[in-house]
């Protein structure tokens, strides 16, 4: 019994010490955070080694408690990002079954495991019986109380990240087929201009065939429009953290994120910018997007320039189709096609 008590004290003291003082040292900011897991494994190993050195042999029920407790700690605190509670319960059930298998591997260990429990129930451990038999009914009563207390959390609304674009969109009186629409200002490879200066280089003779000035002029104009209209939500850093961003739910798109403009085609952006939240499709509603329909404030060419700027600033490349002209022979959409069918201008 004394051995069990020592072991229990090591466990009860060790876990908070590890959690509050040692574990934070293992946290690195990088994505997968392998140091956390190394830290946890080292802690468990230390726990085992201390037991070996002190030649402690805690009773089976206590061993089971330790195994179960380490599992709980791992799933609730070590594993990041934290798993949803439904998954957590599933994992803990599996873990509990595993612990039980460990206990009941043969009749002797199971008997050993049972012994203290039986002794508690029949009253051979008098103090333990009093504590357990008083604590459990109070716990049940408290849980009942908690479950009866009315409690309301903000409802969760799930939505698709990228809506399906329509086949065609009509902007400023011109209909364009999104599948083949391209940005008329993407006349040069943008990587050649990553270090060029907006404002300063718009009159310089540089770039392939002297078109650098034109390219940077378009970027400058696009940036000007962005910083007069868009940065309030999408942010000065294009990271979706503008001054108004925290007001809205869902929050504005983060263009730095590889999951937004980096995986979209420019024609998709053109459609989203022109039509905004009200132009989103009926499927998968509600979108709750606060994005204004910018065609009301911007000309078609301005929208294209903003899109050009967004890619230049973030360094992402828009997704494109292969050059195969898949649209040849496609039917003309109702309402006719714009004067330049490829740019909607």
């Amino acid at each position: 019994m004394k051995q069990g008590l020592t072991s229990f004290i090591i466990f009860v003291l060790g876990l908070p010490i590890f959690h509050n003082f040692i574990f934070p040292m293992f946290q690195t900011s990088s994505g997968l955070n392998p140091a956390r897991y190394v830290g946890f494994i080292l802690f468990v190993l230390t726990f085992i080694i201390i037991h070996l050195i002190l030649r402690l042999k805690p009773p089976m029920a206590m061993k089971a408690l330790f195994v179960w407790g380490f599992g709980f700690y791992f799933y609730d605190y070590v594993l990041i990002p934290h798993i949803p509670w439904t998954l957590f319960i599933t994992y803990m059930m599996l873990w509990s079954i595993g612990t039980f298998l460990y206990i009941s591997q043969d009749a002797a260990t199971f008997k050993e495991f049972r012994r203290p429990i039986v002794k508690t129930i029949v009253g051979e451990y008098k103090l333990a019986r009093i504590v357990v038999f008083i604590f459990l009914p109070v716990f049940v009563g408290f849980t009942t109380y908690k479950s009866l207390l009315p409690k309301f959390e903000e409802p969760v609304e799930l939505r698709t990240v990228h809506p399906a674009p329509p086949a065609t969109t009509r902007v400023h009186g011109k209909t364009c087929a999104l599948e083949k629409t391209r940005n008329p200002f993407r006349i040069q490879e943008q990587d050649d201009y990553q270090t060029a200066f907006p404002f300063l280089d718009v009159n310089k003779d540089f770039g392939k065939g002297g078109t650098g000035a034109q390219y940077m002029k378009n970027v400058t104009e696009g940036g000007t429009i962005f910083f007069q209209n868009c940065h309030y939500c999408h942010g000065d850093q294009l990271n979706g953290l503008g001054m108004f961003s925290h007001v809205f739910n869902p929050t504005p798109a983060n263009f730095i994120d590889p999951g937004t403009i980096a995986m979209l085609r420019e024609s998709f952006l053109f459609w989203r910018v022109s039509k905004g939240g009200p132009g989103l499709p009926n499927e998968s509603t509600p979108w709750s997007s606060a994005m204004p329909p910018w065609e009301e404030h911007l000309k078609t060419e301005q929208i294209w320039k903003v899109i050009l700027f967004e890619y230049w600033y973030t360094g992402w490349h828009p997704r494109t189709f292969d050059t195969e002209p898949a649209y040849i022979g496609a039917p003309v959409p109702p309402g006719g096609i714009g004067s330049d069918p490829e740019t909607c201008m």
């Binding site: 009914p137 408290f142 009942t144 109380y145 009866l148």
Partner: peptide
């Protein structure tokens, strides 16, 4: 909320 928790506790006892 005033009578259910004691009932639940009593059942458990």
């Amino acid at each position: 909320i005033y009578y259910m928790p004691p009932i639940a506790a009593a059942i458990f006892i």
